[in-house]
Design a protein around this nucleic acid. Structure first.
Lengths: 241, 241
DNA sequence: TTCTTGATTTTTGTATACAATTGGTATTCA
DNA sequence: TGAATACCAATTGTATACAAAAATCAAGAA
């Protein structure tokens, strides 16, 4: 017991990785024995991890026993994105209405400046990797603007890989169509922070919702325009149809 | 293995009941051995139940090991209610925008009629118990209007007892101030269904949000006007401050 | 007395053993 | 040949054993 439930954590990350990376196909049954061997742990922490992944929605319980990797339809992915937009909107609205301490506002400003820098130049020579990191940090800061309660709920929803703000910003993939969307995204980032500073809750909420629609646009581009991208975007490994 | 994870289910319901009923005080540590003896199961399904309750938010993991019953501040309860209002609003908006099959609409209408009947008469001789049951059914139907994805999320949020639409409608308590709020609530119920039928997504969403504010009003009445009620409303057993 | 330190006792997290159910396979009968 | 059944293997859910860490308590020093 060096760290709290170290084996369970290892199991959780291990299985999640096997699923998201696509090494285990969507829909296929998860054999506990096979996973135990592969991850080098015992069944107890593995089962804890599977139960947790069941809560996250990545796997589903089979009525006759055990778990299977879930697969997600286009509609389910859209709804997960819609959920994120709605909850981020809630966080921003409450932040605007209740007020955000100056220290946090300047942290957001600093992140905004960093994002601008990363976008300097055109689509080809932007600092994409830096943008990805800063974008993730920026969104995580937004999640905490209202309260721990709401942050917690957003983190739960975005534990599904395709619901994360970074879903279509995989460093490996680096699709040019996705890159193009970043300029508009950053404009929205700035508007969101401004709305919070001006205590414009309604505007902040609307912006957060619209911002999430960018993810939906990227999703629909992949599914309707260039399905070969499904394999190159890890977050979509579980999406069928 | 007569039913799927029968012992784990029993443990889950057993521990949840011990917590919500207040038999285990908020903040106190949960001894696995004590619970195992009390519930007549082994530690394995008990630990599965504790992990699940951790996800629900009823208990929290202690850094040094084990779990403790959570306690909730006024602000946390308010945020949980806000979350429910926001997510119910999302379900209704999407239902209105995407359309709801006629069969479901008439089920909602039937529930509305039942609720009206239960409210016939004045505050003293309304059929309160029937209202409570129908109100719970009505809300659960609303949750499924958009999709399973969204229903699932709402069910998760409302697993905290004070976030449930029935939180302040305990049959035993039957507080007269709460009863009075039911007439206005039912008016909102009718308006919500009408908005969905007319495909007025924005109105449906706004109504759902405002509807949840009734729960917040009841909460604030308990905390500010008559704190003795805290003990009579089981859903508030974990609320401090 | 109060704080620190050491030993003892709980308690948790993990591994494993066990039993029942499920799924698969081969055999038998029509 | 095909379906049904019986048997066997595999897998899951539960119980328990075990080891490490944490909490508790007592004794001694300041």
């Amino acid at each position: 017991m060096s760290q709290r439930a170290a084996q369970s954590q290892r199991a959780l990350m291990g299985v999640r990785d096997l699923i998201v990376s696509g090494e285990i196909r969507a829909g296929s049954r998860l054999s506990e024995l096979a996973l135990v061997e592969r991850l080098g742990i015992s069944r107890t922490p593995l089962r804890a991890a599977l139960a947790q992944l069941g809560q996250e929605g990545l796997v589903e319980a089979i009525p006759s026993g055990g778990y299977a990797v879930r697969s997600f339809s286009r509609e389910e992915v859209i709804d997960a994105i819609e959920l994120r937009g709605t909850l981020e909107g809630l966080a921003l609205r409450l932040g605007a209405e209740r007020g955000v301490p100056p220290a946090r506002m300047s942290e957001l400003q600093r992140l905004l400046d960093g994002l601008d820098e990363a976008l300097r130049g055109d689509v080809e020579d932007m600092d994409f990797d830096r943008y990805v990191d800063l974008n993730a940090s920026f969104h995580e800061k937004l999640w905490g603007l209202a309260s721990q309660t709401i942050r917690r709920e957003i983190e739960r929803v975005t534990s599904l890989p395709f619901a994360s703000p970074s879903a279509f910003l995989d460093k490996q993939a680096g699709v040019v169509e996705f890159r193009r969307s970043l300029y508009g995204a950053q404009t929205q980032h700035r508007a969101m922070v401004e709305a919070i500073a001006l205590r414009e809750g309604g505007r902040a909420e609307a912006l957060a919702r619209e911002h999430a629609r960018l993810a939906r646009q990227n999703l629909e581009f992949v599914l309707d325009q260039d399905r070969s991208l499904i394999r190159r975007v890890p977050a979509l490994s579980l999406v069928v149809g």
